[in-house]
């Protein structure tokens, strides 16, 4: 390639854009849970592939950062691999799959099983940032509702769930109240991860590229899942342990093994699973005695 061809700025976005996004991020951190509008840019990927998260990451990443990208907990799926490759190319940063080594973790919907620590930043890719949207289609009205703290509608949704299913059946994008003020959609993370947002040591940033909104949960902030007194918030529980590493009390994915109904449940967080196996934990599927799998 000839040297006089135009090159990308560090981390793809131009510096003015990054400053604009950083200002939005600072504002979002100052008002936890509040959706800050920003001038979302066209990115070299389609909407829905994480353009919001990518712009947030691009604006905060520096040459010293170590980036991890996960898609549904996995480091090795298309979306994660592509975004990781993108930043390697345009920012030349170090990448990792180890949660504990990363300074920035961009995620499409899971929060890693390993407890995040101070100094880490979790960047969420958000499709629809407005928790009230499905009940109230007017943006002017939802903004007003946030401004006036009119959140009765949120409980209407949960009420419907109980009325129809006998319990709050919403399993992902489960609405939370941040710092006792704004109701926030935690992006389509499974509600299993909601408790991890509460009083997290890490900074959590949310970017919605198509909807042009950024919001944030600063470290050590109250994040409370909405519920009813007689139907308290509960996370999913799994009967099985991870078939590969034997982990219990983690979020599991179902993997279909054959067309005869064979299946296994494995950690959704691939790094967590690998780490455990490296440390000698073995699940039923990998155990020498196949009987244990029954």
């Amino acid at each position: 390639m000839s040297a006089d061809l135009a090159t990308y700025n560090f981390a793809y976005l131009d510096e003015q854009t990054k400053r604009m996004i950083r200002r939005a991020i600072l504002k979002a951190i100052s008002i936890p849970g509040y959706q800050v509008p920003f001038a979302s840019r066209e990115m070299p990927m389609p909407y829905g592939w994480g353009t919001g998260g990518v712009q947030v990451t691009a604006s905060i990443i520096g040459p010293e950062d170590v980036l991890k990208v996960i898609d549904q907990g996995a480091d090795d799926t298309t979306n994660a691999v592509s975004i990781r490759a993108f930043f390697q190319k345009v920012a030349d940063v170090a990448v990792t799959t180890h949660t504990k080594d990363a300074t920035i973790i961009q995620t499409r919907h899971r929060i890693p099983e390993a407890k995040l620590t101070e100094g880490q930043v979790l960047v969420y890719q958000v499709p629809i940032p407005e928790p009230l949207r499905f009940l109230e289609p007017r943006e002017t009205e939802t903004r007003k509702m946030h401004a006036l703290e009119e959140y009765g509608l949120m409980h209407v949704k949960l009420y419907e769930d109980i009325a129809i299913n006998g319990r709050i059946s919403k399993t992902y994008a489960y609405p939370v109240k941040v710092d006792g003020r704004y109701v926030m959609d935690p992006s389509p993370t499974p509600k299993f991860d909601n408790p991890k947002m509460h009083m997290s040591d890490a900074l959590q940033l949310f970017g919605a590229g198509r909807e042009k909104r950024i919001y944030a949960v600063p470290p050590h902030t109250d994040v409370v899942s909405l519920d009813f007194e007689d139907y308290p918030f509960e996370i999913q529980t799994f009967e099985q342990d991870c078939a590969l590493c034997g982990a219990h009390g983690v979020y599991l994915d179902e993997v279909v093994l054959d067309d005869k109904g064979g299946r296994m449940f494995v950690c959704s967080d691939t790094d967590h699973c690998e780490d455990r196996r490296e440390h000698g934990h073995v699940g039923a599927m990998l155990a020498p005695n196949q009987e244990a799998a029954e």
Partner: peptide, 17 residues
């Protein structure tokens, strides 16, 4: 039920039953 209950939830009722 939710149509009727909305106003109650709006003023802070949090007991489904």
């Amino acid at each position: 039920g939710a149509n009727v209950g909305e106003r109650l939830m709006a003023v802070g009722d949090r007991h489904y039953g």
